[in-house]
Structure formats: C-alpha cells, structure tokens
Design a protein around this nucleic acid. Structure first.
Lengths: 221, 221
DNA sequence: CAGGAGCGTCAGGAACGCGTCAAGACGCGT
DNA sequence: ACGCGTCTTGACGCGTTCCTGACGCTCCTG
C-alpha cells in the first residue's frame, strides 16, 4: 500500500513514517498543500494521512480538491478539537478524523480500518476511443487531446466521477456554478451540447453523455 | 435510513435519538447487548451507533458477533480514551470511534460519513429479470435499459423503497404530485398502467406492481 | 339481479423540457 | 486599448410528457 503523509511538522513526519513503514506500507511525504496535491495526481497513493494545519493551502482545501476527482480514503489529523472543523472535514468526504495528541497505535489502527474499506477506484476511465484521466485533467479522443474550457471540465468531471449513475440537474448546477444556482437548466443544455460536440462521434446521437429528460444527465462508459 | 442506537444511558439515548431523527433517520433503541444483538438480527438496521460500556454483554463482544455475519457500518462510542480499546474496536471492524464527551454535531457528521460510505454498497433490487438501481436511477429488464419519465420514476421509487409493503394512494399522491393532491386516484391508474406496460411481462397480469383495491399499491419482488 | 364503486385503457390537446443557434457581456493577457 | 476565448442570456422549433375526460370492465353489495 502506498500511503501519502501530509504534514508540516518534521518530527511527526518522521515518527509516523517509521510507524507506517513498519506496517509494510510504502510512504510518500509532502510538507505542504501544494506538493500534496501534486503528489496525489502524480504518484496516485492508495491512502492519505492529511494534517489540516498546513502552511500554504489549507488541509480542508486539499481535501475538497482531491474529492473532486478521487474517492481514495483520507484520514485527517488536526490539533484543534473544535467540532465545526471536524464536521466540515467529515462532510467533505474524510474517512476518519483523529485529534492530536494521539497514540501511534490508534492512528495505525485507523489507517488499517480505512484501507480495509478502500474499494476499487478508477481514476482514469476509458469509453470507446475516449480516455478521461481525472487526476491529470486530460481528455483524449482517438489519441488526440481534446481541449475543454473550465466549465466544460467541471461538468464532465462531475458526471464521470459516478459512471453510469444519473446526476440531477440541481447537483450539477450546485457543484459547477455554485450553490445559488438551481433553476438555470439552460446552462446545462448549452454546455452539455458543447461537450457532445467535442466528445461524441455523432453529437446528435450521443452514446456517452445521456440526458434523462426532467431529471438530469448521466455518463455512460 | 434505519439507525440502531445502543446505549445504557437513558439521557444519551434521548439526546442522540432526537438528533438522529432530526437528520431524517428512523431510530431503533437498545439498552443492552442482548437486545442489541436481537434488534440487529430482526430489524436489520442500516447503521449502528454502539456504546462500548454496556451492562451485560460488552460492546466489543457485540461488535465481534455482529461482524461474524454483517458488514454494516458501526460507529463506536466510549467513555474511555484509552488507546488499546480504540485499537481493538477498530481492528474488529468498527468504522469509526468517538470518545465521550463529544458534540452532537460531530457524532451526526460521523454517522453521515459512515452512512455515505455504506450507501455506495448495493441498494439495487432484483426481481426476476428486473433490476432496479435506485441511486443510479436506472432500470433494466432482461438486460435492456428501460426509459422512465420523471413521474414514473417518482412512483416506482416510492413503491420500491418499501418492497412488499403496501403504500396508500394518499401517500403516493402526496409524495409524487405534491401535498395538495389526495383524491386524484386517476393519475395513479394512468401511471401505474404505464409502468406495468414497461416493466411487466404481461401487463394485464402484473406480478410485481400489485394493486390493492381501495387502498393502494405494493411492489412485490 | 341490478346498481355502484373502483380500476384499467385509450386518445386527444396543452404544457413542458430539450437541443440549437446567435448575440452580447465579461475577463484576461498582450 | 485591443483581441481573444469564455461565459451568459434569450429565442425558436421540436419532441416528449403530463393532464384530462370518456368508456368498458370486474368485483362487491344490497
């Protein structure tokens, strides 16, 4: 198991690193949010141990961005015992939350528990001549790179994250345009149209970007 | 979601029960290990909140016996912050561990987090050559996808959520058409008819979408 | 046996949602 | 300031879905 350890405290990094390696894990290290996000995209670890108190990008932000394209288990560390921060992290999709100070044994047990639940995760998805690489933010069609605008990417990402599943119009609008948008379904029509033009062989007869009238859209692999 | 709450402290039971119900969960109560195990077998909850300090059978024992035959999420409560007990519970298969005293919000967030992970399990319902996948909003009959209109979905979802149980006409109308509808049973006749035409082998002799004259409809798996 | 209530079916018209296009507004870098 | 790409916004045509009323049927009841 590859474990990414994100913490700004060098002592803690050393201690936890030793403990994790003793469990038989391969340990990657990041000291700040920026390099954490980079390591997540490039090295594709199987599980993440994430300290919320980072010098640059906040841990919560790292978690939020990671959850945009991956479902790998994340165990959060925090010095603060404040409830609101815990609630925020858990609702963002953290798998577990440990408050400092904590025992090494406890952390290792929580990592084990999270790893045990780790399901099969497919960060890069292939559908016909389409290849959608979420971590790399890259789409190719028949080998050729397809350029997407930020909004188009947000939409596609949301749909591809749950292949085959229907995503409601509200969810799409909330996630891509913001919580204040709910009824602007015309945005969806325009941008789904754009995506189909770029990704589908025959945009008028889509095979992957399926619309369910009155409900939402789904990505069909 | 059905939540089984196992705790010997009556005050805590009341407080947590209120909070969990406010989240929209159905709450079952057990005050000791024996009744907890019984409730687990008979009522099949979707998630368990388990206090380790029980009068008769220890919470750890309840967890061990439960894990022998079920993988449903368990959130453990404990007064003791001792590390060994945490490690033991987590390695036995607890999904989360909360130490008293804790904030209501935090516990609810952890329950949400556990429920979310479990939710991606298998809430798909199979009945003959019919496969109904609620979260994906997809129905297949003998492998072929069946397209449903929003109203048809609303109706089917309502019926399938309680398989085998009768759902009254009022409940169906309220849920699918809105609270102001109550006597428009003709809507039901039309749309149940449509569903039967799409889902039943012989729409004139339905095997799954059963009507109970004068009362309502039921979905028979 | 007659009557009524409840259910299933059908077929119209009205209303809605979707895809498409194009024009204007905005932001950004040069 | 200019040009470019991106995002918003509105309008139109078209297909689908929804509502509605009518009819025939079966079952239950008096």
């Amino acid at each position: 198991m590859k474990v990414l350890l994100v913490d700004d405290d060098a002592t803690l990094r050393r201690t936890l690193g030793i403990g994790l390696r003793a469990e038989g894990h391969e340990v990657l290290i990041a000291a700040d949010g920026r390099s954490a996000l980079q390591a997540l995209r490039e090295d594709k670890p199987d599980i993440v141990v994430l300290d919320l108190g980072l010098p640059d990008v906040s841990g919560v932000e790292v978690l939020r961005r990671l959850r945009a394209w991956s479902t790998i288990p994340v165990v959060v560390l925090s010095a603060r015992a404040e409830s609101t921060e815990k609630v925020q992290a858990l609702d963002l999709g953290a798998d577990d939350y440990v408050t400092k100070p904590f025992g090494m044994e406890e952390l290792l047990a929580r990592v084990r528990a999270s790893a045990r639940r780790a399901g099969s995760d497919v960060p890069v998805l292939e559908a016909g001549d389409l290849v959608i690489d979420l971590p790399a933010r890259r789409v190719t069609k028949a080998g050729a790179v397809v350029r997407l605008t930020p909004t188009e990417w947000g939409l596609l990402e949301m749909l591809v994250r749950t292949p085959g599943r229907l995503v409601s119009q509200q969810d799409l609008l909330h996630e891509v345009w913001g919580p204040t948008y709910a009824r602007e379904t015309n945005y969806l029509r325009v941008y789904v149209g754009g995506l189909r033009k770029k990704l589908e062989d025959d945009p008028s007869q889509p095979r992957h970007l399926i619309t369910e009238p009155g409900m939402g859209y789904r990505f069909e692999p």
